[in-house]
């Protein structure tokens, strides 16, 4: 309940933040809303010696639409996403994160940078094929969703890199569904599925994306299920048979409340449900 001691800095610019992270090495951690990091620190499962708090850095809170994409500042909170239904599935997923108090503090940048495959937003980013901008010592770079998540709690970000913005393609013309399976309302997903469907003029499936939460060490795409549905009919049977492929290639870890087989089963069921919702939208 008491964290180990640490130093605390509040840089006012991104450059300053990056410099602090760089100069202090791996033991320096970036702090945004703190709702991934502080719980670990309180249990002393993490003990950084320096926290670099981004709260005074301007320009990281925006949610705005520009051309065909949404630009979301790294410090936009889950509550901000929740309150922006125009975002579509990202808003629907954010609304299901933990509880209101957590959503009032947790940020999209923090959640993505933490790289927890059980969190909701990483699978959404992957399904939407979004990207993040990250500011490092050598300037700003773009990391596509498919490259961001590398392993369990491991991302492509260097330790002195800061996510500044998340870009999600707007999903005009797409239907979506986010199915999150939990034991209790406030829990992390046992399995979550983010589905997007674009209907063709004839009502068939022009395109489809399925992202999986907590089905492996990173968020995943259910590509076999996507392939089975893409270009075909969106009737119940087609969706059901496509969803049967949802767990192909996954190797989810078992835990107290779910065996790997059960998680694969959930992935199939939830994929069907999310696709049905997406196809109806």
């Amino acid at each position: 309940m008491i964290t180990a001691p640490f130093d605390y800095e509040t840089p006012e610019t991104l450059d300053e933040a990056v410099r602090m992270l760089h100069e202090n090495g791996e033991d320096a951690k970036l702090l945004a809303g703190g709702h991934s990091l502080l719980p670990l620190m309180k249990l002393r499962l993490a003990a950084p010696t320096l926290l670099v708090d981004l709260r005074l850095v301007p320009g990281l809170h925006h949610i705005q639409r520009e051309n065909g994409s949404w630009r979301i500042g790294a410090l936009a909170r889950h509550a901000d996403l929740q309150d922006t239904p125009e975002l579509g599935v990202a808003s629907a997923a954010a609304k299901q994160i933990a509880d209101q108090q957590v959503r009032n503090r947790g940020t999209i940048g923090g959640s993505l940078a933490h790289g927890d495959p059980a969190s909701d937003l990483p699978a959404v980013l992957v399904a939407l094929e979004g990207e993040v901008s990250a500011q490092g010592r050598n300037g700003l770079r773009t990391i596509p969703a498919g490259e961001l998540f590398q392993d369990y709690l491991t991302t492509a970000l260097a330790h002195d890199e800061v996510i500044t913005e998340v870009r999600l393609p707007a999903t005009d013309g797409w239907g979506y569904g986010y199915e999150k399976f939990t034991r209790r309302a406030e829990d992390w997903a046992m399995v979550g599925v983010c589905a997007l469907v674009k209907k063709g003029a004839d009502g068939s499936c022009e395109d489809v994306r399925v992202g999986l939460t907590n089905m492996g060490s990173t968020p995943l795409r259910a590509t076999a299920a996507e392939q089975a549905l893409r270009g075909g009919s969106l009737d119940g049977d087609s969706i059901a048979s496509a969803a049967e492929h949802a767990a192909e290639g996954t190797d989810p870890p078992g835990d107290l409340n779910a065996t790997p087989d059960y998680k694969r089963h959930l992935a199939r069921v939830l994929t069907r449900r999310a696709l049905v919702a997406a196809a109806q939208a």
Binding site: L37, L40, A46, W188, N257
Partner: peptide, 12 residues
């Protein structure tokens, strides 16, 4: 809860 506090290997 699926996740819960677990030591991070790395993170931003």
């Amino acid at each position: 809860a699926g996740s819960g506090p677990t030591a991070p290997d790395e993170g931003g």
